[in-house]
Design a protein around this nucleic acid. Structure first.
Lengths: 115, 115
DNA sequence: CTAAATACATAAGAAATTTAGGTATATATT
DNA sequence: AATATATACCTAAATTTCTTATGTATTTAG
């Protein structure tokens, strides 16, 4: 279960993507979802996740509602109207960026040297 | 020329990729190369680039040689033997990570909700 | 009954980047 | 001739973001 050092900067956008598709999710659920979707290669740390969620709330991107389920507190996060717009933009921007990086990483000598 | 906030964590690996293909490059050349390969969407900042290069040198990943070209000093960076191995690993790791993130970003509701 | 899983949180420290500044030469523009 | 732009390097303070470590608490599995 080799975690990667590359999550930097992508965490918030990944959260927004999951919230966009799932409607609402709670923190622990997000960690498990990312773990499953990444085939156990990305294990979000709680020390990174919760502060990110709190920041998104402060920014007005998400709202929260607390529930007690099976005797345990859960805090559900969902996108605000502003958040939905922001999510679309962020997701598109990240996809575009990833594609650009892929182009660079897969470029061959000729392509790079003819610049 | 909209720069992205996602470069976080990928900078060193991008440098290694370019050095791997080009043999040796100097700082300014790296910024121009990334700019061109990214169609002007990624403009490396010098404040990020030079400290990264210096760190790679300290780590023994790259070595330097200075030259005067057209009356201006250039500092060429190239991979050490250790660096070549490290570069291959880093590049492969980043590609694998990017693919994983792409999978998540392009997953649809059904896929995500059936976890 | 104890460990693991579930579920939240924060805080100190480390790492990486942004922002802003500095130096200097060559070339293109006015 | 003067000025702006491009080339070429560098650093340092502040900020952001993440890791690591720690804490609390309940449920479930062994």
């Amino acid at each position: 279960m080799h975690s990667s050092e590359f999550i930097k900067g992508t965490l918030k956008t990944l959260i927004l993507k999951l919230l966009k598709e799932n409607g609402k999710m709670y923190g622990y659920e997000i960690t498990q979802c990312v773990k499953a979707l990444s085939r156990d290669t990305i294990q979000l740390t709680e020390g990174a996740l919760y502060p990110s969620l709190h920041a998104l709330e402060l920014e007005g991107i998400v709202t929260t509602e607390s529930e007690i389920v099976n005797g345990r507190a859960r805090k559900y996060y969902s996108l605000t109207p502003t958040g939905k717009t922001a999510a679309k933009e962020k997701i598109a921007a990240l996809q575009s960026f990833l594609q650009t990086v892929q182009v660079i990483l897969t470029a061959d000598k000729k392509t790079i040297q003819t610049i």
